[in-house]
Design a protein around this nucleic acid. Structure first.
Length: 376
RNA sequence: GGGGGAGUUCCCGAGUGGCCAAAGGGGGCAGACUGUAAAUCUGUUGUCGACGACUUCAGUGGUUCGAAUCCACUCUCCCCCA
């Protein structure tokens, strides 16, 4: 249940209450696709890094270890050791990212498993059942994340099908939640807005799903290759049609600048693989911009990654050490940089919340927008 | 002392007359990454006044229109026998 605490322009400060804890928004969810934060960061570390919500993936956990297995082990929260809220993505993104391995029809999507090629059928009902077995706090509707660019007619048809799928998700979720032995009988369902870069499709779709009284609303199919300005424009176009009393989640986004821009346009929740993936590839996000720790200039640099960062890594280790760890291929390089980046993201959102609390988001935005995207 | 083998661009290593500034790795330098098929992928890596020129394949000299590739000698290293 979302509670709007304060507004500054379109930016919202709120709280999202769930059975597994209350999420302060705007907030960032930490991505643990296959039940683990890539880079050897555990649920135990996540607490220290300021994580509020862990995100796991339906498709990936269904394939391995299997949702029945996870259920038998008490659900994703118990299984991964993360006690707070968990959001499970539906598998809709895999319709996009594994495009070469799947075919879509009205009933759902058939994937050729990326692990062993075996056929996996996933429709709205299957996705809901898997997510129910995973026992997540929030289930995402099964959608099609459409590639960009996509022809108008395709986008339109896909949107219509995503609506039909959402209706089926809602029905199935209600059924599953009413079962005696369901893991989380209060599992929530978020719908997902689609429509590619077509304003009219986006708005129409948003109106359609807004009327369905869901627990929250995702904005999907963005940051898939379109320019950032286009993404911002789409958010602005659909924002007036999103229920004010429901949480809004911009899926898969993004850079610190993207997040700031989206918050200023009324988005509450984010997730992105960037802090973890880029960390594994040597890129660190800092209060001054982005650093590539593999660069030769860090060989003798004794300063911390970010002098204004309170993370455990910045208290102890130098850029020179991290540079060496990356050069040497030590896994510690990844672990430390992932920890830093997640801390950075989680605390960027905490700073945004504080600025909103204190009614100075506009200044905060102005100050940060200049600096966060820079490569240093 | 006798016999055999080898020396290639930062490293390893292919190449044994022109298509070779020289394959492929590694290393170096840089870039990308947005609901994770990603500890991945891409570019670049002799010099310069740079759609061309110049200097490189242990050294020196030679054969040839033309040599990293053939010949002679020299140097260095490795292996085997004494």
């Amino acid at each position: 249940m979302y509670r709007l605490l304060k507004k500054e322009g379109a930016a919202r400060r709120g709280e999202f209450a769930t059975v597994h804890g209350t999420v302060q928004t705007p907030g960032f969810m930490n991505v643990a696709t296959a039940g683990a934060i890539k880079g050897a960061v555990s649920a135990y570390d996540l607490k220290e890094l300021g994580c509020q919500v862990q995100l796991c993936n339906t498709y990936h956990l269904h394939l391995r270890p299997g949702d029945e297995t996870v259920r038998a082990l008490g659900g994703v929260r118990r299984f991964t050791g993360w006690e707070g809220p968990v959001l499970t993505d539906s598998g809709g993104f895999q319709v996009f990212s594994l495009a070469k391995l799947r075919s879509i029809r009205e009933e759902g999507v058939t994937f050729a498993s990326h692990i062993d090629g075996r056929k996996i059928f996933m429709g709205p009902e299957e996705s809901m059942r898997i997510q129910s077995n995973l026992g997540s706090t929030i289930a995402m509707a099964f959608d099609e994340c459409v590639e960009n660019p996509a022809p108008y007619e395709y986008a339109k048809a896909s949107c219509a099908r995503t609506v039909r799928w959402l209706e089926r998700c809602k029905t199935e979720m209600a059924r599953l939640n009413s079962l005696e032995d369901t893991l989380n009988p209060r599992q929530m369902l978020f719908g997902i807005n689609q429509g590619c870069t077509y304003r009219d499709l986006r708005v129409e779709h948003m109106k359609r799903i807004a009327a369905m009284d869901l627990d929250g609303y995702g904005i999907g199919g963005l940051a898939v290759g379109e320019p950032a300005e286009e993404m911002y424009a789409i958010i602005e176009a659909i924002e007036p049609h999103m229920p004010e009393d429901k949480i809004r989640y911009l899926m898969g986004v993004g850079t610190p600048v993207n997040i700031l821009e989206a918050v200023s346009r009324g988005v509450d929740l984010f997730d992105c693989v960037m802090p973890t993936r880029n960390a594994r590839h040597g890129h660190a996000f800092t209060s001054e911009g982005v650093r590539n720790l593999l660069n030769a200039k860090y060989t003798l640099d004794e300063s911390p990654l970010d002098s204004r960062c309170g993370c455990p890594v910045c208290q102890k280790f130098s850029r020179a050490y991290l540079h060496h760890l990356f050069k040497a291929g030590e896994m510690l390089a990844m672990r430390l940089t992932v920890m830093h980046n997640l801390y950075f993201y989680n605390h960027l959102l905490a700073d945004i919340r504080q600025a909103l609390d204190e009614g100075r988001f506009a200044e905060f935005y102005q100050e940060k927008i200049q600096v966060l995207g820079k490569r240093i």
